[in-house]
């Protein structure tokens, strides 16, 4: 049963976004997130919303899956909104008891909320449409320039993919050890949080020992299969850019230019029209 857990949250579907090169998806996600912190007016966010809607729509991942990610950050979102709403000094809007909502507070709270929601949805598109393996491949490819500075890029990527491979195996092992200890009277369920946490300690020792043993075996097996680092290594399916990837980069560039121009109101258009809130 525990074997069946899928890692990450890959949602298998046939879509353009699924087929995009993982490097493109990583770059789009990163720059989109940055763009959210660059723009600071309503037309800017409207643009970001359009881009996000386009990005999500193409991915064919159902909206409810996207919004599921919201649950994990709900409290963070709530706190951000509440604190910004009541603690920002400025022109009072409403005031009751000791609390005052200011015009500036309302604006910042709304912007922060929108930013957070966009950020989560935007990055979940990447995790929904990219297998963990492709992600590590993309990370390795994009970090390659850092190799010149002496960063062990290939090794980091290899560690990530091995970790991903072994998480389900170690989960299963944890399950086995737990059952073995429960059979001898260990109690993992009763007591408060601290007591339950403490009862996990005897679980960790055998788990660590077994993990080290596995690591040793795996290292031998890798060496036996001629693994000697990233030097001279080829890939069965190398990452190659296709036309769709170039188009995606083009659209991203267009979006970024517009985001800066509109979102930062470079030409003072909004001010010139006068009506739009800044």
């Amino acid at each position: 049963m525990i074997k069946d857990i899928t890692l990450g949250q890959y949602y298998p579907a046939e879509s353009v976004i699924h087929r995009l090169d993982p490097r493109v998806k990583l770059v789009v996600t990163l720059l989109f997130i940055i763009s959210l912190f660059v723009v600071d007016n309503i037309p800017g966010y409207a643009l970001a919303f359009l881009f996000l809607a386009f990005w999500c729509g193409l991915s064919r991942v159902p909206l409810r899956f996207m919004l599921r990610g919201m649950r994990t950050i709900f409290f963070l979102l709530l706190m951000t909104v509440v604190f910004n709403l009541f603690l920002t000094p400025g022109t009072p809007l409403v005031s009751f008891w000791k609390l005052t909502i200011t015009r500036e507070g309302l604006r910042i709270a709304l912007l922060m909320a929108v930013r957070l929601v966009f950020l989560i949805v935007g990055s979940s598109v990447m995790t929904f449409t990219t297998t963990p393996n492709h992600l590590t491949d993309a990370l390795e490819a994009l970090m390659r320039p850092l190799k010149r500075l002496g960063a062990p890029v290939h090794e980091i990527a290899m560690m990530m993919s091995i970790a991903l491979r072994f998480i389900p195996i170690l989960m299963e092992e944890t399950d086995k050890i737990m059952k073995a200890q429960m059979a001898r009277g260990a109690d993992f369920e009763s007591g408060g949080l601290i007591r339950r946490a403490r009862s996990l300690v005897p679980l960790l020792v055998p788990l660590f020992i077994s993990a080290f043993r596995r690591a040793n075996d795996l290292a031998l097996a890798m060496e036996a299969r001629c693994y000697h680092g990233g030097e001279g290594r080829t890939r069965m399916i190398p990452l190659t850019y296709h036309a769709r990837d170039r188009i995606a980069y083009g659209l991203l560039l267009l979006y970024l230019i517009l985001a800066v121009v509109i979102g930062r109101d470079i030409f003072g258009l909004a001010a010139a029209i006068g009506g739009l809130p800044v």
């Binding site: 596995r214 075996d217 795996l218």
Partner: peptide
């Protein structure tokens, strides 16, 4: 080429 005892500890790919 060498094949080891524990199948889980020698499979690298996902």
């Amino acid at each position: 080429g060498m094949v080891f005892q524990n199948p889980d500890n020698q499979i690298i790919g996902q």
